[in-house]
Amino acid sequence: MATGIRNPVTADLPLAAFPYLAVRGVGFAYRRDAPVLRDLSFDLERGRLVNILGPNGSGKSTLLRILVGLLAPASGEVRLGGALLADYPRAALARRVGYVPQETAQATGFTVLETVLLGRSPHTGALGFEVPGDWYAARHALHLTETEQFAERSLDELSGGERQRVVIARALAQEPELILLDEPTAFLDIKHQHAIYGLLRRLVREGAKTVLCVSHDLDLAAAYADDLVLLDHGRVAAAGKPEDVLRAEILSPVYETPIEVRKDKATGRPLVLPRPQA
């Protein structure tokens, strides 16, 4: 099969079989006897906000690390824009895919603006000097994430929610088409959770971005995502619209907990109610 960026259209697959991001039969294991992903396949269309759900250890973070090129799949293939992910030069991939890792304590001494400017690295030259366009992109990213007021502050001084927005701003300054986020709301309160998801929504609607987000919060995902992908033991258990995925008969076996799903009267969205036996 012909592969590579030069000739993305291969003979054995018709054009319609090339979604923006195609994950096909991907398998991965950190240790040989414990596969994390097995034969995992799903598609992602451009301009959508997709949320990956699943219990702990179902392979969500590993999947993101493969999609951003930090890990290579042991089997199967990932195609972005029709070309194999492995065929992208490292910096070229970094210009197309942005990544917001799970929050780690950062004490680098960089200011917020400097941190966001680091997102321009895939665009700068060998010595890493920024040009006015880079400063504009960074300022714009600060504006989008409403973190302009912190620009000259040290990252260490910010709260968790503020810091998370700065990390998202860094990914935005990268000007990627596809943004991957690993539990961006994990340590945030309700207000900030909704602020982050509202921002992701805006990025898809107004910024023409495609967003793939990993999270544990089923209700937040139902409220903001276009599509959900539910992982279970490294496979796709269900994928599609929130109302098709968030169903009691699908969720209960995956989470190994009796789960009731009701309809929220105000919004018509599914409401997930765990009912563990006492």
Binding site: V68, L70, L93, A94, R95, V97, G119, Q174
Partner: peptide, 8 residues
């Protein structure tokens, strides 16, 4: 991870 995702 950030470095890797930014092309290093």
């Amino acid at each position: 991870d950030t470095a890797g995702a930014l092309g290093v």
